[in-house]
Write a protein that binds this DNA or RNA. Sequence first.
DNA 1: ATCTTTTATCGTAATATTGCAATATATTAA
DNA 2: TTAATATATTGCAATATTACGATAAAAGAT
Lengths: 110, 110
Amino acid sequence: MGITKTAIFTDQDNSLAAIAKALAHPARIAILKHLIKQDSCICGDLVLEIGLAQSTISQHLSVLKQTGLIKGNISGTSVCYCIDTEAWQQANQTFAGLFAAGIPTSNDCC
Amino acid sequence: MGITKTAIFTDQDNSLAAIAKALAHPARIAILKHLIKQDSCICGDLVLEIGLAQSTISQHLSVLKQTGLIKGNISGTSVCYCIDTEAWQQANQTFAGLFAAGIPTSNDCC
DNA sequence: ATCTTTTATCGTAATATTGCAATATATTAA
DNA sequence: TTAATATATTGCAATATTACGATAAAAGAT
């Protein structure tokens, strides 16, 4: 159906999947890395930096903003984006929790 | 177009996005957690554990296997799946690297 | 007020994902 | 061999995603 049955999963699992989904595109990874690198925020330089159309970059930014990983301030005609530190650290914790729990003693299957 | 322009991104970004994509569904998160919890491997119990059709679970397992996060051994009529420890630790490192680099000094945008 | 710049949104097309039923395949049990 | 069990694959249908061009909206410059 192309639609995920969110109701049958835990909130935690849905939430983790949602964050992963936001990270599940190289353009969004590139955007986040660029925001991290610059520390101070950039705006439409991303369009030049990454080779995608302006509308496409805008869409990716929208996805990241909706997930809460980034936030944007209007400054003049341009918009200044940056990592939302709190959400970022929370995402870090969430993934760390998943991975930390998941290192079994042996690597043998049955 | 529905198709990602992988060519314009770095291998690292594509790889990170690919792992994130594998984690970007609650069913797959639930499967991984179950595999972690059981340590010893399970097979079609997942169909009962998670409320999805057998064919759907099989597809999700296929996605996880293709990404390399899990592996499966045939044991009788059933197949025994488990986390691929090495790939799992590598994925852990990859995400940790992204998040660790990304905690800026201030949370102010511009 | 008009023009320019920057970003967001809309419309559209191509492709991907999710999910299930039905079927195929493979192995064990009888 | 035949039946039963477990998993994979195939064939749909519904929805989501990716991408772009065109257009709208908002703020600053002339």
